Amino acid sequence: MNKRYEKELDLFSNDKIFNKLNQESVFFISGSTGMIGSYLVDLLMYLNNAKGYKIQIYAMGRSKESASKRFKTHFDNVNFHFVEGDVTKTIVSDVKADYVVHAASNSDPKLYATQPVETLNGNFLGMLHLLNYAKEVNAKRVIYISSGEMYGIPFDIDDFDGFVETDSGYVDYSKSRACYPSGKRAAEVLCQSYLDEYNIDSVILRPCHIYGPTMTNSDTRAISSFIRDGVFQRDIVLKSKGDQIRSHCYVGDMAMAIVYAIINGQTGEAYNVAGDSSIAAIKDLASIICNYANTEITFDIPSETEQKGFSKVPAAILKNNKLKSIGWQSHYSLNSGIEQTINILRENIDTNNQT
């Protein structure tokens, strides 16, 4: 937490959508120490501390020790409650949450290769247990953080200009790498099934490649690795040609998508989350970071484990028109978001070195 980050939280907290949010709402957030979950916690706590809200936040994670470090400014606050637990196990809680947000998932390509079973369980079993919890406490709405990877590979790549929410591409189920997109697909169907059978209100968000200052140190995704290189002014090592084209989105804009889905989202609907002016090939993304950090791009051969975790999707482009139709807009382009991320992380390093 530094002044630049606080200024950003203040920007988002002034969004008019918060006028529609009950100031004493109760949130139950799985994956609270991950990149998306932790940003959402920070944003809601900022509303409490700076705007006088009294939102109760139940932040679920597997390690109290890790959470106490990540949320050291929140941990003793009366509105913050850490829930130690694993979403792949039954959730036993008497907390009457208004909103349940499932943001717990292996989103690291290395884990897809080394922990495909855990990746599947985190999505499907995690969603199952959170939906059962929402059913027991009569929650107002469940938000599932799915993924743009659930679309798979476009069937007609030559005419492809981006996925809309009704599209569906090809996923190779003969490889364990399918654990991630197929787990996301299965969890989405589970949401729809609980809606039809038990009338559990849910909204699905399909984010593209999310980045930002709340990324974890263990995140081995290309964009996170590149950003860390930019922060420390190291040359970026590409382990492919870098031709894959992707949509990107700044984590603060992603957190706001969750809020808009809670307030304005339509029950049972899915919404793509992608920033404006944020489509780039991997090699172009690396160039943006190198130009900002004044470093170079080099090439290396990936290991067998790294290759196993790579996505085979040549173009992962998401259209965000549907999300915009409920009032959401992105504040950061890819260039401005990368700059903001590197600046915040560098300032945090400087502050830690001083203390």
Rank of each mutant, 00 (worst) to 15 (best):
L190F: 08
H209W: 09
F232Q: 13
T216R: 15
V259H: 02
G183A: 06
M256C: 07
R206I: 04
D172I: 00
C191I: 10
D167S: 15
G252C: 12
R177Q: 09
F160I: 05
V137F: 08
L238V: 09
H209A: 13
I143T: 04
I258K: 04
D243F: 14
Y173K: 10
Y173M: 14
D253T: 09
I153T: 08
Y180G: 02
I200F: 04
R228F: 15
F155R: 01
P181E: 04
D167T: 10
M254P: 00
G183S: 03
K135D: 14
S176M: 12
Y211D: 09
S224K: 06
G148Y: 01
Q192M: 10
T220N: 11
Y194F: 14
A178K: 00
D196K: 13
R234N: 15
V189A: 14
G169P: 00
Y211A: 09
A187K: 02
R228E: 15
V237A: 11
S247C: 08
R234F: 11
V237T: 14
G169S: 00
P213A: 15
K140A: 11
E136L: 10
G230Y: 11
D161I: 11
H248M: 12
S146L: 05
L205I: 09
G230D: 12
H209L: 13
M150K: 04
A261N: 05
A139S: 14
Y151R: 01
V137S: 07
M256D: 03
S147H: 03
I210T: 15
D235A: 12
S182P: 01
